[in-house]
Nucleic acid binder design. Structure first.
Lengths: 230, 230
DNA sequence: TCAACGGTTTTTGTATACAAGAAAGGAGAA
DNA sequence: TTCTCCTTTCTTGTATACAAAAACCGTTGA
């Protein structure tokens, strides 16, 4: 497909794109924790540009839901409460399930090959015990299913949401034995798709994603004693 | 809920919001047909503002997928092929089905009342034969289900997509007897929700939306003899 | 001590100015 | 005539300047 609009479709200028990507990573990476105020002047100084491209990048970030722009007040890194995160995983599960159902019916032999290749990459990463390699291969695996759905709009939606959840999914791979379990779930998904069994694929994928949400939930619960969930 | 961010969550400034809404309507209404180039200077003249707020509105429109910004080339109204439109309806059907499944389980008596009220408004609009009143009441009806899902993120996604499909849904209401059929489908949906039957609600809603996509497809097919579907 | 008021300062929102790339149009050669 | 190259013009992208609103802060009064 086109390399232009991978996870994020709309990019105004090249520098705004670059700015947005750096800011995304910083927000995901905790450089700007939730609630942080992103003031335009500081960002302009940091990137050695004027406020104009900064503002444009902020608007894009707001559109993707990462920050919130309160008129005349400024841009704030959005608090994503556990509640909302679980909601997002629920929706993600449904989108992936839908992709899977369609992919089981529609994938071409070529696409099957790509899926299997990604699955084998996951296998190698699992054996070598390299979580970040697994994370990467896992991305390819799911991408194969998105594009295999034959519904490009659906695929775009799935990519966009996956991208928003990326930092949390990454975190969650550190949970005990999650990589191994994830790989086994993939195994079932691949089998169902190769069988062309849409219902089985759908259910396996939904469960696969929902488990991630639950594991994440457990993980968070083990960190803090209590939270008011927005 | 908050009146601030109804269908679209992120709005930078108040004037950018106003600009975006007008442009959205113009694009939907055919003032700017697909492929049209939106040059900043003309828009600035039209709205009697500088290019700055225009650019910000365009970036938001690009983020919502209505236009495409090609760097250094300008903003173009996006062509939405029949193919893509059907894909969008497919996804919408799934989102609504999910809302329905959750709503059937989770809606409070208050929310039930609001749903029924919207349904009755639909009934009045059907009897009076006023399509635009029906369109409005129909929006309330679906909104009741979105917010009744108890998953605010899901509700936001549903609203956003519904907003993008709005012009096409509106068009489609002119199809012979579509309003009457739509109302009957609502009837089944309300019954299923009041019964708390999640599976029945899910299926009724999915069918309700998919039919819209199909009817729209028929409608388009009846207009042009042939199309290459991008 | 605390709350309310007013002025100062900072920050956002908008307009304008400038730079650089793309499109358009014309001149010249084949 | 038609293709190519170059110049001109126009449009976008970025920087800066200005206006207005919000935040800040010290003062004053109870």
């Amino acid at each position: 497909m086109n390399t232009e609009s991978a996870p994020h479709a709309p990019t105004a200028t090249r520098t705004a794109k670059a700015l947005r990507e750096v800011l995304e990573e910083d927000i995901a990476g905790g450089v700007y924790p939730p609630g942080t105020r992103l003031d335009e002047a500081s960002l302009a100084r940091r990137f050695a540009v004027s406020r104009t491209p900064i503002r444009e990048a902020l608007i894009e970030l707001a559109a993707s839901g990462l920050i919130e722009i309160r008129p005349r007040r400024g841009a704030f890194v959005r608090e994503i409460g556990i509640r909302r995160l679980i909601e997002m995983f629920e929706v993600m599960a449904e989108l992936e399930a839908m992709c899977g159902r369609l992919a089981a019916r529609r994938m071409t032999p070529d696409e099957h090959a790509r899926l299997v290749a990604a699955h084998e990459a996951c296998a190698r990463a699992t054996e070598s015990g390299d979580p970040s390699a697994y994370f990467e291969a896992n991305g390819q695996f799911h991408e194969a299913i998105y594009s295999g759905s034959g519904n490009e709009f659906l695929a775009e939606q799935a990519r966009a949401l996956q991208s928003r959840l990326k930092p949390y999914r990454r975190l969650q791979l550190h949970v005990r034995n999650r990589v191994g379990n994830s790989f086994q779930e993939h195994e079932a998904i691949v089998a169902a798709i190769l069988d062309g069994d849409d219902t089985r694929t759908e259910e396996a994928l939904r469960a696969h994603i929902l488990i991630q949400g639950e594991r994440f939930n457990d993980f968070v619960a083990s960190l803090r004693p209590r939270d008011g969930a927005s």
